[in-house]
Design a protein around this nucleic acid. Sequence first.
DNA 1: TATTGTTATACTCTATAACTATA
DNA 2: TATAGTTATAGAGTATAACAATA
Lengths: 163, 163
Amino acid sequence: MELTNRDRTVVPARLARLPGYVLARAHVQAHARFQEVLEPLGLTPKSFGVLIVITESGPLSQAAVGETLLIDRTTMVSLVDDLQRAGYVERGRNATDRRVHSLRVTAVGEEALGAAERIACTLQDELLAGLSADEREQLSALLGRIAGLSGASSDRAPSADLG
Amino acid sequence: MELTNRDRTVVPARLARLPGYVLARAHVQAHARFQEVLEPLGLTPKSFGVLIVITESGPLSQAAVGETLLIDRTTMVSLVDDLQRAGYVERGRNATDRRVHSLRVTAVGEEALGAAERIACTLQDELLAGLSADEREQLSALLGRIAGLSGASSDRAPSADLG
DNA sequence: TATTGTTATACTCTATAACTATA
DNA sequence: TATAGTTATAGAGTATAACAATA
């Protein structure tokens, strides 16, 4: 009787024209793909972000990384656990404040990050396949502005699920 | 000693320039806000979407709605439970196939949907505050294209968390 | 044999509360 | 008294497996 096919609908324009919905849909798709291709490296979208922040912003405390990426400090623990277990980061001790962990990226970690970035690049091409170079820049710029990522330091409290 | 403030970093360009990251960040922020403002209406971003699909695409089975929005059929059960409990939708019986529930939106449901859309509109203005009308259209169009929402029927399996 | 809706269950992700060691 | 890190625990949200009713 093919009820399934007869009933299958396209997302109604009333929903599909809402920026918030297309945003969600694009994110979910991109996130799932990224998670997939990152798995062989022992990384997740989140730990990938953590790895970049530590690499770029020198030895950092777990709290500092969490604030930067809006990740709760209890979530940071297991995130860093995984990165350490993979040999990508080390928990050093801070001489001036023995409470904090000085997070540093290892040579292996830098290699993994490089590989992950190459993969991310490929995936980007896949995701943005239909867009010209100009359009890609436009999209990134527009998203960056609504995400509040244009250099301003965030004052927001940690919230959920950052890819 | 102000270690916290001294250590706080801005998201490094190496991460912030990746479209996938700004996408995630923009989505998380928009989703959290939408969830917040929808709560008084007894709706979530997801049930809001379900309500629109049922309203727009006539009486539908739960399976059909799920396929359209990429929501698993077991998830659909509790989603429709909530909408029904709120008096927004009714589970009618389909005369030709007594397995399926014919989902219809009630008058109260239509009212709630209207209110939710007005709220969504306000939130949109808040989210896209820095963007001109042209830029908003550009953004929606670009996102729609990478989300594969341009009229083509999806062949993908249900996946996670669609706002 | 396949499909719709359902339940029970498990898994993932994240946050809250409470603890320790430091400051 | 406050903060960094940690643990145990609870809460969402979602998916898997199995079932009844129907096709």
